[in-house]
Simulated scan of single mutants.
Amino acid sequence: MSDIATPPPSITAQALPTPTSLRGAAQAAAARGEPLVVMTTLTGCPYCAIVRNHYLLPMRREGKVHAVQVDVMDRTGTLQGFDGQLSTPADQARAWKARFTPTVLFFGPDGRELAERLVGIAVPDFYGEYLEARLAEARQKLK
Rank of each mutant, 00 (worst) to 15 (best):
T101G: 04
K64L: 07
Q92H: 14
A25T: 07
E132N: 06
T6E: 13
T12V: 15
V38W: 07
L118G: 14
M73A: 01
R52M: 01
L114F: 15
M1S: 11
V68Q: 11
A138F: 10
A29C: 12
P89V: 03
F107K: 03
G81F: 15
Q140V: 04
S87Y: 03
V70H: 08
P89G: 08
A28V: 04
R112Y: 14
R99C: 09
A13Q: 15
V70N: 10
T103M: 01
A26Y: 13
R99E: 13
Y127R: 08
A30Y: 06
I11W: 09
P46C: 05
G111Q: 08
A15C: 09
S21W: 14
P124Y: 00
A13V: 14
L114H: 15
C45E: 01
A115M: 13
G128V: 06
Q27G: 06
G24Q: 14
L142C: 07
T103E: 00
D125K: 10
M73G: 02
G24T: 12
L57W: 10
P7M: 10
Q140F: 15
V37G: 06
R117F: 13
F106W: 15
V72N: 02
D71P: 04
L135K: 11
T12W: 05
L135F: 12
D91C: 11
R32A: 12
Y130G: 14
E129Y: 11
K141N: 11
E116C: 08
K141V: 00
V123E: 12
V65N: 12
F100E: 05
L114Y: 15
A13F: 12
E137S: 15
Q92M: 11
S2H: 13
D83S: 03
A90Y: 01
F100L: 13
R139L: 06
Q85C: 06
R61G: 03
P19I: 02
V123N: 13
G108Q: 05
R23V: 07
G111L: 01
S2C: 09
E113K: 03
